[in-house]
Design a protein around this nucleic acid. Structure first.
Lengths: 246, 246
DNA sequence: CGAGCGGTTGAGGCATGTCAAGAGTTGTGG
DNA sequence: CCACAACTCTTGACATGCCTCAACCGCTCG
């Protein structure tokens, strides 16, 4: 038991409804580990032995192929990642790399798999979590296939503003380099696109975003509940990049 | 009870392990419906009232936005689709349209949600199904972001050959127009790409594909277990386009 | 201070989309 | 059975979106 981290984890949808004894059992089988920034904690293709829970810091999930790589998501506290791989007892599909100093709780996959057979509420929570993650990735795929890069950037900027509480100004939660990769474009192209978007209702100053004409930006981004949300809750890897700080 | 379709459905991973009585109960609450070709049976955004099971024919799942649309998957017998939406009791993220005359078994979503609370084996099956679907979509997203269109086409052609049993020649399971959309490109571009691939070990004659130099094609496609499979089993919508007929 | 890194900008090139036309195929109704 | 319409597929010409390469700025950190 780790009294400092357990309460936060307990509040996650995934663990909220299970019996206390079962939760305690899962936690006692798991342990905390701290990683320095920029460390590759998981390599894609490795067997999935542990469910990972970020309790501090942030983690980047990247897909790799033929020497190329792209950012699939960023996970921030408190949320889990690579649940699906653990359940399938299958290799990780993505590499996980810390963006900063990060504390992770590691829950043995085998205990996890045993637990949802015993605790129905936990099983239902896992079902809901996976369904939610699935829908997030589908939305993401739709965004990639249906929108061009300019529209993706506009949507992203608008959505971040909403996630930050509808504020007109906020700070980008990640480096532009990483954001570009997440949005499926090069850093150079993102930089240029951000500049040209100044004619469409948004001003960029470094990492600072100021929405000057929300209606105009929305006209370009055409936000759609079936792509951009609304059930984007930050408790899962599939939800993509985290909320901005306003 | 529909003795003609029930046995096929019972064999699906999703329903294989549940108690017979529970399965029978689910089936008795559901019903079969036949649709003509080209009919939109589900429109994205509609509430998800029924889990759909294709028992005959084929269904295209398309994403739509701003007047554009793209094919996300094709579902063939016997498999389910839009499981996640049913579980979340959320709107469909994709439109479903029949490609030919199609018979569908409709299972009320509410019965489904009630059932996995009562039948642990079913709950575990749902968990495995969702985890599997999730991984399929992630693989798909990786393919879209990491490979260019030429590489995607090459991978697709190679994978179809493998799914057909490693045969050197087979027939495309879908129209090229649809395949282009699925691979995220225009029909014109697919047509041109297929032609240029003749220098890379594959010959196209109408819908007929003949792999003339497997090694050469593989060198271009760089097939990867973490993108192209291997746990591509055709029982889910997330698995994408179905296997080719050899 | 200098190296390294993220970000920006410009020039040029390749990949991909758009528009248009025509061949081949399928389906339909007279 | 034929004629016609509708559709897919292909090909060409052209436009453009996006990437690549390169240089430079500013910042951070050893």
């Amino acid at each position: 038991m780790r009294p400092d981290t357990d309460p936060q984890i307990r509040h996650l949808h995934l663990f909220r409804d299970m019996a206390q004894a079962n939760f305690a059992e899962l936690m006692s089988a798991s342990y905390v580990q701290a990683f320095p920034p920029g460390l590759e904690m998981i390599r894609q293709g490795d067997p999935a032995d542990f469910l990972h829970i970020v309790v501090q810091g942030s983690v980047e999930l990247v897909g790799q192929w033929a020497g190329r790589e792209c950012t699939m998501a960023v996970v921030r506290p408190v949320s889990t990642f690579i649940l699906a791989a653990c359940i399938r007892d299958a290799p990780y599909l993505m590499t996980a790399r810390t963006l900063e100093r990060t504390r992770i709780v590691l829950v043995p996959a085998s205990d996890l798999r045993a637990m949802f057979r015993r605790d129905t509420e936990f099983a239902v929570a896992v079902i809901n979590e996976l369904a939610s993650c699935y829908r997030s990735v589908v939305r993401n795929a739709k965004s990639m296939k249906l929108r061009n890069s300019r529209e993706r950037v506009a949507s992203y900027l608008l959505r971040q503003s909403i996630l930050a509480g509808g504020v007109p100004a906020y700070t980008l939660p990640v480096e532009k380099r990483l954001l570009a990769s997440y949005l499926g474009m090069t850093p150079e192209n993102l930089s240029r696109t951000l500049r040209t978007l100044e004619t469409d209702g948004v001003k960029i100053d470094g990492a600072r975003v100021i929405i000057t004409d929300r209606a105009r930006l929305a006209a370009l981004a055409k936000p759609d509940k079936l792509i951009d949300g609304p059930d984007t809750h930050a408790e899962e890897s599939g939800s993509g990049l985290p909320a901005a700080r306003s």
